[in-house]
């Protein structure tokens, strides 16, 4: 269970989240929605212990482990995995080199180099990307869609148990979006990870079918519901669905 209690976060002098609370049961899928700039990505970054976000007060525990006492590496080794909106490009560092180093350093690599490459090749086929991606520099000179698929290549190899998908659907065409969604669904069915997805798109919600949908406004979650809440938002908008008081938001 991920439990975020009374969390207040700032970056620079600006408070982004205030008394933020969220609980996600192990193996469930939750969606986080809200206007641009509401602080959705901040949650993703704070969970991954990005140093640019300072926790002023509150707590975050994952299965009773205090995430706030961990650094980014430790959180990742706990099984958290972030796919950001625009994954970073790292020239000169190949996917294979990074993945093999990470798995070796965590003592999780049971494959010899041949088996390791065979596993990567199979995942590439599944993601409909050329096997040359294995030795390509991380996200370097890749299109938006290729970057997201490349991140899923990492996911399948590192086998995390908690996915944070920060607008993974942004910049994807219809076919790529379906492929990415289906791949995450397949991963969910095989490994049963917990998923926190941040999205503005209907397609991914339809594929992954979150059990709970949360709406973030004014630095905290103001409403939680089931998938019907997302449907209502898509039909009527945040204001139309009487979820967000526009005047209050602007203030």
């Amino acid at each position: 269970m991920l439990k975020i209690s009374n969390l207040t976060v700032k970056t620079g002098d600006k408070i982004i989240l205030e008394d933020f609370n969220l609980e996600i049961e192990e193996g469930s899928i939750h969606a986080l929605m809200g206007h641009n700039g509401a602080g959705k990505s901040t949650i993703a970054k704070v969970l991954m212990r990005d140093k640019n976000y300072e926790v002023v007060k509150g707590s975050i525990t994952l299965n009773d482990q205090d995430l706030l006492k961990m650094n980014t590496t430790e959180v990742a080794r706990c099984g958290l995995f972030l796919v950001g909106q625009n994954p970073v490009e790292i020239a000169g560092v190949s996917n294979a080199e990074m993945l093999r180093t990470s798995l070796n350093d965590q003592g999780k690599n049971t494959l010899n180099i041949l088996e390791f490459n065979q596993k990567l090749t199979k995942i590439c086929e599944k993601l409909e990307i050329p096997s040359s991606f294995i030795h390509r520099d991380i996200n370097y000179n890749m299109s938006g869609g290729e970057k997201k698929k490349n991140e899923l290549l990492h996911m399948w190899m590192l086998e995390p148990n908690f996915l944070i998908l920060d607008e993974i659907d942004s910049g994807l065409d219809v076919d790529s979006l379906k492929l990415v969604g289906d791949s995450i669904k397949e991963y969910f069915e095989e490994y049963h990870p917990t998923i926190l997805m941040i999205t503005h798109q209907k397609t991914l919600l339809e594929i992954l079918k979150p059990e709970k949908v949360h709406v973030l406004q004014n630095k905290k979650i103001i409403q939680t519901g089931d998938a019907s809440l997302a449907e209502k938002i898509f039909k009527e908008g945040f204001s139309g669905a009487s979820i967000i008081d526009r005047g209050n938001l602007d203030a």
């Binding site: 991954m48 990005d50 790292i90 990074m98 993945l99 180093t101 990492h154 590192l158």
Partner: peptide
């Protein structure tokens, strides 16, 4: 910093 954060978020130490 963002490159460092990215690799650390994949389980590599600093």
């Amino acid at each position: 910093e963002n490159e460092l954060f990215y690799l650390e978020s994949k389980g590599l130490d600093e």
